[in-house]
Design a protein around this nucleic acid. Sequence first.
DNA 1: CCTTGCCAATGACATAGGTCAATCCGGATG
DNA 2: CATCCGGATTGACCTATGTCATTGGCAAGG
Lengths: 194, 194
Amino acid sequence: MRDHTYHLLQEHIQKHISVTPDELSFFLMLLKRVTYHKNQVLLREGENCLNFAFILSGCIKSYLIDKKGEEHILTIAPEGWWVADVKSFITNEAGNLFLEAIEPTQAALLSRANQALLLEKTPRFERYFRVLTERAFAMSQQRILDAMSLTASERFDKFRLQYPSLTNRLTHRQIASYIGVTPSFFSRMLKQRK
Amino acid sequence: MRDHTYHLLQEHIQKHISVTPDELSFFLMLLKRVTYHKNQVLLREGENCLNFAFILSGCIKSYLIDKKGEEHILTIAPEGWWVADVKSFITNEAGNLFLEAIEPTQAALLSRANQALLLEKTPRFERYFRVLTERAFAMSQQRILDAMSLTASERFDKFRLQYPSLTNRLTHRQIASYIGVTPSFFSRMLKQRK
DNA sequence: CCTTGCCAATGACATAGGTCAATCCGGATG
DNA sequence: CATCCGGATTGACCTATGTCATTGGCAAGG
């Protein structure tokens, strides 16, 4: 428990709430450390999402496959982000998302049961998850507005501003999917931007 | 404090957490009751959103006006829903949304300061807001996926399923804006559906 | 070092949905 | 009542983005 493997997560927590060392170790004790290889699928459509994952290194995408078989990326989570099929996680029902590592990835998993335990024993963490979710919600709402009011090219501009480091780590297909266009159109769009 | 004006809100709270009568009254005491007439604008772009509003009766919309002057509805909040410019509320910065009553509306306002007070004195409410936000977040994510993977007509089908009562209360323009199409296209779409 | 396979680019063509203007209508207001 | 105004509909036309198929490149694995 004294190693620094969870450095990134500790930082993340302390940025949001103040906790005692005991509370912190209790949290860390509830986690399960996992490794995924590139292209490993962590969760499939129709499965119940049992864990929230904090990414320590690497990158995970969450996506939907529509009835035409097309993939639509909902979330891209590099190190320092939490990711899950949130709807499934909170409702305890089967979800419709896939989770997949797009790089070799290390993560810390917090199971639904352990989260419940954590929140019961250490209600201070309620605030951590509330604030986290509020931020995620605000960003999600902004994305809805962007989808309705901006062109694909403008959405790409915002993407690059918001996630400059991701722009190089992801393939064009992935960025295209995230901003909501096809790879062919994305490619044409890039050319047109000179 | 003993009147039943906040019946709907009390119910809403008790559906999510268990609170003592004292905690409940403390919450209710922090609220400010307001009335809005139809078309009244509660918040404009560029303003700091100081309150969360719980709708007791009537209906509020939140929307963005894009650079072409077009309105895009983000949220429709009838009685029983909380509404705010969440990003502005949580960051304490100027927002980009408008809030406007689309019916004569009664609401209970919880200011940022009072929410902070509430959460400090009665941490039990952290859970209430966490759960609320989680649900809202999950719905918001679903809407992003719908925008990416469904046609306008399919989005309308989902809208009617999800909000059957709203379908009649709103104008076609409003529904069109919410599902992300223009009024003319919405009208044509309806005709085509036979 | 040669497959194999996915990604990127691109041409030809298709379409969902947007734009703009005209008309009609019903409810609100003086 | 008469007026006014915004919503709904619709026609003609437009465009952003999708579809599909082809080609070339580059990276991983046997």
